[in-house]
């Protein structure tokens, strides 16, 4: 069964996303909405990670040398500055959040096929929050893009 591979992938991507939110929050303190919401969303990702730990333990760690290395989404190592930098950072977060979002979707499908009510409960608690992250990032980028691309220095 390859579900452990995806559970590891999901747990890892929640951690990566949390770290990336913290990274962006740290650099973009002058954009208080971005700063504070990234902190809030990082805390949500960390909570998701903790909820997944029990599931990962139950299904067992993914075998070493398996797909996760190649599937793994890189986190953001450093953030950019300025209006264009903010837009690009939000876009990177969007890619990471979308990756996490769609991974939840696939884990949910497997959980349904396995009739794993406990895992479905974890999915229910987390999946919606990540979907909101994706929508928030879209909302914020849509607001920022014209000013950045047309008028910013």
């Amino acid at each position: 069964m390859k579900l452990p591979v995806y559970l590891s992938l999901l747990a890892e991507s929640e951690t990566t996303l949390a770290d990336s939110y913290l990274q962006v929050a740290g650099v973009h303190g002058d954009e208080p909405d971005v700063h504070f919401l990234c902190l809030t969303m990082a805390a949500q990702c960390q909570a998701h990670r903790r909820m997944l730990d029990g599931v990962v333990a139950r299904y067992g760690e993914a075998p070493a040398g398996h797909e996760p290395e190649r599937l793994h989404a890189d986190g953001m190592r450093e953030s950019r500055t300025g209006p264009l930098g903010l837009l690009r950072d939000l876009q990177d977060l969007y890619l990471l959040a979308s990756f996490t979002d769609v991974t939840w979707m696939m884990v949910k499908q497997a959980a349904q096929a396995l009739r794993d009510a406990d895992l479905l409960e974890v999915v229910d608690a987390c999946e919606h929050e990540i979907a909101v992250h994706v929508r928030w990032l879209q909302t914020r980028m849509k607001q920022a893009a014209p000013q950045v691309l047309i008028a910013a220095r």
Binding site: L37, T40, H133, R135, W136, Q138, T139
Partner: peptide, 10 residues
């Protein structure tokens, strides 16, 4: 909107 983040419902 989502009341925690302000994300548009759409």
């Amino acid at each position: 909107h989502d009341l925690l983040t302000g994300a548009d419902v759409g």
